[in-house]
């Protein structure tokens, strides 16, 4: 059984998520709390933390993602599908990102993927990542060498962004599903490698803007 903890400040959303996951059969909602502090107080050790990105504030809780990933794999769920939020969450170490518009089937499969150590790449997430990682020259010039996508990785991302499942993507590319999973895993690795230098920059920026306030 997959142990899941839900962190969401909306009681209605929590209840909805609980019922969606509860129906899956192989997933148990171990705890359902309104904040990361509540999770710490519960003292549970789940396989997957389902974390709402906006916990009652205007700012995405990227810091919480960074901290919680030490305790369990974090699957971010948010009403926001903004590229900046999605990329931010993946870069600080989320194992996947689903929007709240997602259907029960997709949510359950994302939780299973993350619980198995994989990267839950929804078509929406693939769409955002492909756009971000294959920007045309002006933006790409600043990228570190070796962090851009290989043609096969981009093809996989492109097919997934169109809505194909990993299995369908594999068939279209003439490879095995395991190979597609590897491509997806490499995409995540590339994002998170690129991340380190950028994280430092973001942290410095935040520090600077914090001092101004």
């Amino acid at each position: 059984m997959i142990q899941v903890t839900i962190i969401d400040d909306h009681p209605v959303a929590r209840r909805g998520l609980e019922s969606m996951l509860g129906d899956a059969g192989d997933i148990v909602v171990a705890a359902s709390v309104s904040s990361p502090a509540g999770f710490a107080a519960e003292g549970t050790s789940p396989d997957v933390i389902l974390l709402d990105l906006y916990l009652g504030t205007d700012e995405p809780c990227l810091d919480a993602v960074g901290q919680l990933r030490a305790a369990a794999r974090v699957l971010v769920i948010s009403a926001s599908g903004r590229p900046a939020d999605v990329l931010g969450a993946i870069r600080v170490g989320a194992s996947g990102y689903v929007t709240k518009e997602v259907g029960a089937g997709m949510l359950v499969s994302a939780v299973r993927t993350v619980a198995g150590g994989g990267f839950a790449l929804s078509s929406q997430l693939a769409d955002i990542l492909q756009s971000e990682l294959t920007r045309n020259p002006p933006e790409a010039a600043g990228h570190q060498p070796g962090t851009l996508l290989s043609p096969r990785e981009e093809q996989a991302l492109d097919l997934i962004a169109r809505g194909f499942t990993h299995a369908q993507t594999a068939r279209r590319m003439g490879v095995s599903k395991a190979t597609v999973d590897t491509y997806v895993e490499r995409v995540r690795a590339k994002l998170q490698v690129r991340n380190k230098a950028e994280l430092t920059r973001v942290a410095l920026l935040r520090l600077a803007s914090g001092e101004k306030r």
Binding site: V12, A13, R15, G16, S19, M20, D58, A79, S80, K100
Partner: peptide, 20 residues
């Protein structure tokens, strides 16, 4: 964004989870 992220989510959750 606030309407989308907060109010709309609650409304849609109420609709999608028929039992509520």
């Amino acid at each position: 964004r606030m309407l989308h992220d907060r109010v709309l989510q609650t409304l849609e959750a109420l609709v999608h989870h028929g039992s509520i």
